[in-house]
Design a protein around this nucleic acid. Sequence first.
DNA 1: ATGTTC
Length: 487
Amino acid sequence: MKSDTMNRNQIKQINDYLYEIPADASPGMKVPARIYASEKLIREMDTAVFTQIINVTTLPGITGPALCMPDAHSGYGFPIGGVAAIDPDSGIISPGGIGFDINCGVRLLSTSLTYNEVRPRIKELVDTLFRSIPSGVGSGGIVKLTDSQFDEAMVKGSKWALEHGFGTPSDCEFTEENGMIRGADPSAVSQRARERGAGQIGSLGSGNHYLEVQVARKGNIIDPATAAIFGINKDDQVMIMIHTGSRGFGHQVATDYLQLFASQQKRFGYALPDRELACAPFRSKEGQDYFSAMNCAINIAFLNRQLIIHKTREILHEMFGRTRGLTVNTVYDVCHNTAKLEKHTVNGKEKILLIHRKGATRAFPPGSRDIPESYRRTGQPVLVGGSMESGSCIMCGTESGSPGLYTTVHGSGRVMSRHEAKRHFNGRELQKRMESHGILIRTASFSGLAEEAGGAYKNMNDVVDSAEKAGLGKVVATLEPVGNIKG
DNA sequence: ATGTTC
């Protein structure tokens, strides 16, 4: 049992949407911890979040404050919604700061369809998507890759899909890292991870992973000019959002290296407050191997989402191809579980830092060279998946996000554990209730559905509002769910 | 999140 030494009155309020735990609050803290949240959200946070972010401030090489986003809740080692900048020369890389589902992320598609055109066939659409896109625990993938294909896919990510006819160049253009991150080395990946991964490419998985059919209602477009640049330009436009990651592959990579790192803590000279923070010096062989394997998992997750959207596009063309000028375009694909080398200004100095983001979304500002050219004036699209009942949100990165390492929320954030949610909600009743609210839902598991009930999550509007007021991005539009394929 | 405890 971990000791919970945190005392809420150690948290100092800096302004309405920012709190700080000073570096002298607890022994071993190298930097302060900062929590971006409204008073309501910080009150609702489990104290384990504060203990965990204090633990993060003790990590070797941490530079600038450790951060929590407004949707933070406790996770393995780091909180989900936790962000840490680590000096790559003197510091560590920690799988617990990235998450088991490496490159869990969100892809948003815009279609040229309006809801009026889709509504008469929504049941058929949702049924076809559910039948065609594998979902649920242990599900197989849309394609099964051979060993040599998988080796190539780990390096090429979404580019592999493009080369094999599963996508368009603009899918890659509008994906973070163009769907192919550098530094992926398959030799750092275990045979077991390969075996788990090769059969799962193009599958949703379980838990909070889903494919959602959404409608952009005119009244929910907050910033029409930016929304138009993101491809939302008609009333009641149909959008598709996908939330999934690297499946069993990333999970195995994380497990392999957590075990290795845990066995080496003494040798590395680390005595961390929580064994779940097991890490390696970034510049060590072990650290570099994990970084290489993690980059493979980042690419596999990009490829996974790419195959799912390609299948979705095919289905939309089969069903609605007679609609004049049908288009299905990637608006953006963004990660929320990664560690990436980025240039940031901390304490007035520019430096390359290893940014761990766990359940936290990159939100680069206007002018950034690392976002598609057509978004340089708006800032990077940020895709925030709400709970399946509350809808989702599109934000964009802003210059005011600099103190927050250009990072923002990733979703609503749980308030109820999965176990607790299953006691509170019944999956079949929930499905009926949602259908009565105009949300058609298909699921591989009704107990899994109950775990994802809207009531198990924080209010998405609270979370997004706090992020915006804290300067961590701007709201562009909210999207209303009408159909959901849930793992 | 996860072949949901190799």
